[in-house]
C-alpha cells in the first residue's frame, strides 16, 4: 500500500512526525537547528509540522460549529501557511517558533471570521455556534499541558508527585499531605520549590508571553 493511500486523515499525516504536534519543545529545538544549519530534511520536518499544526488548529475551530465548509478549510490553511512562510525569516526568537505559529493562526483566524460571509447550513443549531471572535482555550491546551508535564518530569524525583498533585490535579496542601503522608509544611515547601523551578523551565517560559 502506498504512503499516500495510508495517509487519508490529518491524524495519519501528523503521525509521520517523530514527535507529537503539541510537543513545542521538540519543534522549537528542530527549528533552531534548522536555522543554524539548514538541511532539506529538517526543512521538510518543519514544514510538515507547520502544515499539520495549522490544519489541526482550523479543524478544531471548524468542528466547533457547523457553519464552515471544507473548501474554506483548505483555503484558510493555505493562507496561514503562506503567511508563516513569508514571515518566518523575520522571527526574532527561533526558540519560540511553535508559539509564534500558534499566534499567527489565531490572528489569521480572527481575520478570516470577521471578513467571511457567514454561511449557515440548514442543520445548523444556533445554540452551538461559538463566539467567532473569542480566542478559544482549546487548541493550545494540549501544548500547555505537555509543557507542564515535561517541566514536572524534569524535577527531582522527590518533588514530582507533590508537583503533579498540586499543579495538575489542583489539590490543596491538606489533600496532598493526606495522600503522600508528608507533613503540610513539607508539602508547602515542595510546592514552593516546584514553583521556583517552573519559572526557569524553558518549555513553560516559552508560553509566558501569552499571559503577560
Amino acid at each position: 500500500m502506498s504512503l499516500k493511500i495510508e495517509l487519508q486523515s490529518l491524524d495519519a499525516l501528523a503521525s509521520q512526525l517523530p514527535f507529537h504536534l503539541d510537543d513545542t519543545t521538540e519543534v522549537n529545538e528542530v527549528y533552531c537547528s534548522y536555522r543554524e544549519r539548514p538541511h532539506p530534511s529538517t526543512s521538510y520536518l518543519i514544514e510538515l509540522w507547520t502544515y499539520c499544526y495549522i490544519r489541526r488548529y482550523y479543524l478544531v475551530k471548524f468542528i466547533s460549529e457547523s457553519g464552515f465548509r471544507s473548501a474554506e478549510l483548505d483555503q484558510v490553511v493555505e493562507r496561514t501557511y503562506q503567511k508563516i512562510e513569508r514571515s518566518r525569516q523575520q522571527l526574532e526568537r527561533n526558540d519560540r517558533y511553535a508559539q509564534w505559529v500558534s499566534v499567527v493562526c489565531k490572528n489569521t483566524y480572527l481575520n478570516f471570521v470577521t471578513r467571511r460571509k457567514y454561511v449557515t447550513t440548514l442543520d445548523c443549531d444556533s445554540d452551538e455556534i461559538v463566539d467567532q471572535l473569542e480566542i478559544g482555550i482549546s487548541e493550545d491546551s494540549g501544548a500547555l499541558f505537555l509543557a507542564l508535564s515535561r517541566a514536572i518530569e524534569k524535577l527531582p524525583v522527590f518533588l514530582r508527585s507533590v508537583a503533579r498533585l498540586r499543579f495538575v490535579e489542583d489539590l490543596s496542601y491538606e489533600e496532598i499531605s493526606r495522600l503522600t503522608g508528608k507533613s503540610i509544611p513539607t508539602v508547602r515547601s515542595y510546592v514552593h520549590k516546584t514553583g521556583r523551578r517552573f519559572r526557569s523551565d524553558s518549555g513553560l517560559v516559552a508560553f509566558r508571553d501569552w499571559y503577560e
Binding site: 468542528i63 482555550i137 491546551s141 513553560l204 499571559y211
Partner: peptide
C-alpha cells in the same frame, strides 16, 4: 502571569473545561 499560565496548563484535566476541550480532544 505565571499563575494564569499554570492554571491554563492544567485545564485539560479539569472536568469543568471538558466542553471547551472537546473539539481538541476529538481532533487530537
Amino acid at each position: 502571569s505565571w499563575d494564569a499560565l499554570l492554571a491554563s496548563a492544567r485545564n485539560l484535566v479539569d472536568p469543568d473545561y471538558d466542553e471547551a476541550h472537546l473539539p481538541y480532544a476529538v481532533v487530537a
